[in-house]
Design a protein around this nucleic acid. Sequence first.
DNA 1: GTTGAGCGTT
Length: 158
Amino acid sequence: MVGHMNLNTSSQSNSTQSLLTPEEKAEADAKSVYVGNVDYGATAEEIEQHFHGCGSVARVTILCDKFSGHPKGFAYVEFTEKDGMQNALAMTDSLLRGRQIKVDPKRTNRPGLSTTNRPPFRGRGGRGRGNVIVKYVYGGGFRPRGRGARRRPGFAPY
DNA sequence: GTTGAGCGTT
């Protein structure tokens, strides 16, 4: 028999959405964790190294205010594998730069869950809160925006 | 020059 068919089924070519439930999809699609309560002085590098022990960090995103220009103190950590994200979840309330950070599964939007109820402002050209996102590159997939990356000289991934 | 809100893209 020469015709050895490849029953590879390849798999991922198919739409993974149908096979994955919304819950799994959220985790698989996210592969990232939301970090809160981060010190304003903490940089992506610190967060990356802190989470690096959980797994391979793909990218670290820090949210900052574009209008004010002041960092919000929140960041997102994306892992190259889901394992890293799950490990990061266990790092919740871990001590980072002397501050306990909050780690939660990434979410697109969260209902009012804050100490102070924040009613959304509607109307007016106010485009939401207007947050600028500062991206930090790790490994080298894409280049960060802004004038020059914040990469500190002499910084080695390992 | 401060402070503490809660969700982002390649």
